[in-house]
């Protein structure tokens, strides 16, 4: 299977602290992969490496066939357009309406005219299960779940090849959590987006087991397990077993 992201022996040090220790992982293209781990395990740092926001101290990192650490600032900016990201709290621009938030990347990076942008925004809004009533509302007028949907619509606007989710269900009630999980699954598995690679950072084990094709477990800067979900469930690794048992009971 072809990899969307390939990390080989990555070491990342900040001063005297080593955050990632000889980390290697091949994230398959077109699949939903979740990176699990305790807080402070290095999950966010790893995600920043994928985007080129942080460079590894050592090791090689290839994302979508690009050698990320060697890209210049301008190349990195172009490269990041191939990503979409759903932030933990959606990170919507709070002075812009739903329409303006979703239209933002379209206005910045495409030649679409006003009507075409409006049509695309409506299309994206429908795809994430929202109706046109919320089109001209500000983020402060939306619920947490709606904000996540708008954030996802914005992340999908430029038809990304990799969609990153940072703790997508943190702080949400069970019903909204299910809705977000369904949305991740639908987005990741929709027929016309079979090339879309989804990478989720989470410590919500129950959601992870339901929605992921592959699961990686990161501990103290190292991947200690990376396998398809069914195999992962039966792992005998003591740390992961402890994590699984603690969070599923």
């Amino acid at each position: 299977m072809k990899s969307a992201i390939s990390c080989k022996n990555i070491i990342k040090r900040f001063g005297e602290h080593t955050i990632l220790k000889n980390l290697s992982i091949e994230i398959p293209k077109g699949k939903i992969t979740t990176i699990l781990g305790y807080s402070g395990a290095g999950k966010s740092t790893l995600m920043k490496h994928f985007l080129g926001l942080v460079k590894p101290t050592q090791g090689s990192l290839t994302v979508l066939d690009q050698n990320v650490p060697t890209l210049s600032d301008d190349e990195l900016r172009k490269f990041r357009k191939r990503f979409g990201m759903l932030f933990q709290y959606a990170a919507l621009f709070d002075s812009l309406t739903t329409y303006e938030n979703i239209a933002f990347p379209l206005k910045e990076f495409t030649d679409l005219n006003k009507n075409e942008i409006l049509e695309r925004v409506k299309e994206l809004l429908t795809a994430v299960g929202l109706n046109e009533d919320s089109l001209y509302k500000l983020p402060s007028e939306l619920s947490g779940g709606m904000r996540k949907r708008v954030g996802l619509a914005r992340a999908l606007a430029l038809k990304p090849e990799i969609l990153l989710y940072d703790e997508p269900t943190t702080g949400l009630d069970p019903i909204t959590t299910k809705m977000v999980n369904d949305l991740i699954t639908t987005t990741g598995r929709t027929e016309n987006t079979t090339e879309l690679t989804s990478v989720i950072i989470s410590h919500d084990i129950q959601a992870t087991l339901k929605i992921s094709d592959y699961i990686a477990f990161l501990e103290k800067g190292e991947i200690i397990e990376f396998s398809p979900t069914e195999e992962f469930k039966n792992t005998t690794h003591p740390t992961i077993r402890k994590f699984l048992d603690l969070t599923t009971h």
Partner: peptide, 9 residues
């Protein structure tokens, strides 16, 4: 929101 801008390039 600033991270969101940077991630968009």
């Amino acid at each position: 929101q600033i991270d969101a801008l940077e991630v968009m390039g």
